[in-house]
Design a binder for these strands. Structure first.
Length: 784
DNA sequence: CCCAGCCTGGTTTTT
DNA sequence: CCAGGCTGGG
């Protein structure tokens, strides 16, 4: 095992003490600061440590921190790294590093260079919802058959093209693409793409992929600008290199052109983002583009027990396409891998939570040591319910984030439109919300004119010659709306982001409307808006306290800067208190994280691996890598779990054990809670499944499921803790509930969750009609 | 133009 | 099962 930082500080000159913490390969990777470097790093091999120390080492050997650009995959990874560097090199230096996700860093560059590309400084960033909504508009404008032309499909195709640096013009010219589109009954895709790109430009908006594509164009078409950033970023570091796409690689290659000090860290076995355009080819390309590159392989695993490492190797051995490498460890054997085998999804949840209970007791794990990892977000629900029932605090990562809530997006749309009036999606969203008599017909007319004149919707409503072509009544309401927005834009000069947001909230009637809504939904929506306002205030305070990144620059605390930052935040980034909570997330989200005790759940054929991925070998192999990522998150204890049947779309469906279990079942595996049946279920011999060799499922499983449903109906609802006072925001024992202040005391009558949106509610019955609602953590409230 | 209430379609992962 | 679209009455 590696000595810790504290020990080594006592033995070494403090400045380079960190080098003593590294093994030979790691140390070489850290000390090779000049020239191209590729680090192939297996899971748990100290990758983050190497990256961190490498940066610290660069600083300690006299390189200027603002000459270092470090690209990570998540904001969280960037933040953690920054903290660790601060610990070694001090705040002074670490604050000046350029560190963040590709998207965040490029957005910052694009903001600075917007004028060159013909974009406004405060360009909008369209999220997936905005993008799909715009595509939908375009599809209907082109009068295309909605049976074939679906916003989702169009989005994927366009996104794919952009990730491969294909512009609309190139798209229209490519024979390959024409054939694929024709085969899918989508011959008009080139028109959609062209129109989409024009509309974004007109709206001064970029989607996620544009942040990469436009950076690419910026650097490749403007040598002076490229030179400026090449000069600034003398040392490049790229984390999770296996998950970069063509656009990202082209950009970093350009940045590294003159100095070639580029260090990429990755693991082909953990490439799980091919669906987003990531390509392992980049690893090969790197060796071709930088033949002089020093290559380091980190194969020793410091994270997991030997048994876990062995299972992991077994998982990946089933793949054909891979770089030859196997991870090994000196760690103890550790616990056996436990295979949980349940009759249904609810029983699966029950078994997992029971197991958490037991491990907490016997092995002294804490709540925060556990992670439940699943393939799809929708799977979280059963586990949430069970955790709540058993009174274990939890936090779900991913899924619908705060910034995707309707009311939050509404206010955000006003803010966006204030800083960038041409933002079409923001305008459409709120031009008639709250209602001011501008219906679909009117908006349609405005859009038609905008199309004809090749201008934005905002230009139409603010240009007298165009506006007067609308019906009289519409002219008036539209004029009022424009006047209001102009007023807000004017305030932008004199008010800070927080003040302005508050003014907008009250003047548009948005806050008022929600505060008057005394239904449970209304109250929580109102609170969410308050929370949004608070987050803006926090942003400003934080920004103003920050040390500027480079000499002679000022922190950007404008509304535009806020909006841009927020648009790239994910749910993983909220600085929620994580202590004392079991963590629930998808395997994708878990990438780069580690947990003492991991449950990989829903291991059924068609779910994990996803049924979407069973079409070809490449996709199946990616699923296997995903499974590899999942099992290698575990430090001490690993559980694999599956259910014989589960509910989908309200119907009972039977499932068969995942082939992945078959592939690893012979290694250190013990079955827990299985109910061996006469005649023998399953076919691997190492576990007892519920699979029947012919029909796929036994009647017994069905019977168990039905009994369970009955029992569930008879389970008493959660009870209030003793001495509970509804007047304060006390914590309810049953899972992180906060009592809403406004209501009197009552009795819990029901508890409800709504799908993968994870909306949860407890209803109280007080005298007769009146009902109370408990709000779970930050989750919201729905129906009665 | 707005709202409530029925009906239908969707089945993956995310910056 | 659930969300978003569509319809028909105010």
């Amino acid at each position: 095992m590696q000595p810790n930082l504290f020990d080594s500080l006592h033995q070494q000159p403090a400045k380079f003490g960190y080098l003593e913490e590294l093994n030979e390969v790691q140390r070489a990777a850290v000390e090779t600061t000049e020239g191209p470097v590729m680090i192939i790093a297996g899971p748990g091999s100290g990758k983050t440590r190497v990256l961190t120390y490498r940066i610290a080492h660069l600083i300690n050997t006299g390189k200027a921190p603002w000459n270092i650009l470090s690209l990570t995959f998540t904001n969280k990874a960037a933040r953690e790294m920054q903290e660790r560097i601060t610990a070694i090199a001090g705040t002074e230096a670490s604050g000046k590093l350029w560190m963040g996700t590709f998207h965040a860093i490029f957005a910052r560059i694009l903001r600075i260079e917007a004028a060159t590309l013909g974009y406004p400084v405060n360009f909008s960033v369209y999220d997936a919802e905005d993008t799909k909504s715009l595509l939908k508009t375009i599809i209907s404008e082109l009068n295309l058959n909605p049976d074939y032309y679906k916003p989702n499909v169009a989005y994927n195709r366009i996104s794919n093209a952009k990730n491969n640096l294909i512009t609309p013009a190139m798209y229209a010219k490519s024979d390959d693409i024409r054939l694929t589109d024709a085969a899918a009954n989508l011959p008009r895709m080139p028109d959609i793409y062209t129109r989409y790109a024009n509309r974004c430009r007109q709206a001064g908006a970029m989607d996620f992929d544009d942040l990469l594509l436009n950076t690419y164009h910026l650097l490749y078409q403007h040598p002076d600008i490229a030179q400026k950033y090449q000069h600034r970023f003398k040392y490049l570091l790229v984390d999770e290199f296996q998950d970069t796409n063509s656009a990202q690689y082209a950009i970093i290659k350009k940045l590294a052109e003159p100095h070639r000090c580029i260090c990429v860290v990755g693991d082909d076995a953990q490439s799980i983002y091919a669906f987003r355009g990531a390509t392992i080819e980049n690893i090969l390309n790197f060796q071709r583009d930088y033949p002089e590159a020093a290559v380091f392989k980190l194969e020793q695993n410091y994270r997991s027990t030997r048994k876990i490492v062995e299972v992991a190797n077994r998982v990946i051995a089933a793949n054909n396409r891979q770089i030859n490498k196997s991870i090994w460890t000196q760690n103890d054997d550790g616990h056996n891998i436990q295979l949980l085998n349940a009759a249904s999804d609810t029983e699966e949840a029950r078994m997992v939570v029971d197991s958490i209970y037991i491990d907490r007791l016997r092995l002294h794990f804490k709540n925060e040591d556990f992670a439940i990892l699943y393939r799809t977000n929708a799977q979280s629900r059963a586990f949430e319910e069970e955790l709540r029932r058993k009174g274990i605090a939890y936090r779900v990562y991913g899924g619908v984030s705060f910034y995707q809530r309707k009311e939050v997006k509404d206010l955000m749309a006003y803010l966006r439109l204030t800083v960038n009036p041409h933002d079409e999606e923001a305008l459409r969203r709120i031009i008639n919300y709250p209602t001011r008599g501008i219906g679909n017909t009117t908006v349609g007319k405005i859009a038609a004119m905008a199309n004809q004149e090749q201008v934005s919707l905002w230009t139409v409503i603010t240009t007298p010659a165009l506006r007067t072509q609308l019906p009289k009544a519409a002219q008036e309401s539209v004029g009022g709306f424009a006047k209001m927005m102009l007023y807000f834009a004017d305030l932008l000069q004199r008010k800070n982001a927080y003040e302005l947001a508050q003014i907008i909230g009250s003047q548009t009637g948005l806050l008022k409307e929600l505060s008057e809504d005394k239904t449970v939904e209304g109250i929580s929506r109102y609170e969410n808006l308050q929370e949004l306002l608070n987050s803006i205030k926090e942003f400003i305070d934080e920004k103003l306290a920050e040390t500027p990144q480079e000499p002679n620059t000022l922190p950007d605390a404008s509304l535009g800067a806020y909006l841009q930052g927020v648009s790239l935040l994910t749910d993983l980034d909220s600085d929620d208190d994580e202590s004392g909570k079991v963590k629930l997330m998808t395997v994708h989200t878990a990438k780069g994280l580690e947990f003492p005790c991991v449950y990989v759940v829903g291991l059924e054929e068609g779910l994990f691996p996803s049924m979407m991925a069973s079409k070809n070998v490449q996709e199946l192999e990616e699923e296997r890598r995903l499974f590899y990522v999942a099992v290698t998150r575990a430090k001490q204890k690993l559980h694999l779990s599956m259910a014989a049947c589960r509910y989908r779309y309200g119907e009972l469906q039977y499932s068969t054990p995942s082939r992945f279990i078959d592939e690893v079942a012979s290694v250190h595996m013990e079955t827990v809670g299985a109910k061996p049946k006469p005649g023998g279920f399953g076919n691997s011999g190492a576990y007892q499944g519920f699979k029947d060799s012919n029909s796929g499922i036994t009647d017994n499983a069905r019977r168990i499921k039905e009994q369970q449903l009955k029992q569930q109906r008879n389970t008493p609802p959660p009870q209030l803790p003793p001495n509970f006072k509804p007047s304060d925001t006390s914590k309810l024992q049953g899972g992180e509930a906060v009592i809403h202040q406004r209501f009197g005391q009552g009795k819990v009558v029901s508890i409800d969750g709504v799908g993968d949106k994870r909306l949860a509610v407890i209803l109280f019955d007080t005298e007769g009609e009146k009902r109370i609602v408990l709000k779970f953590a930050q989750l919201m409230i729905v129906k009665e």
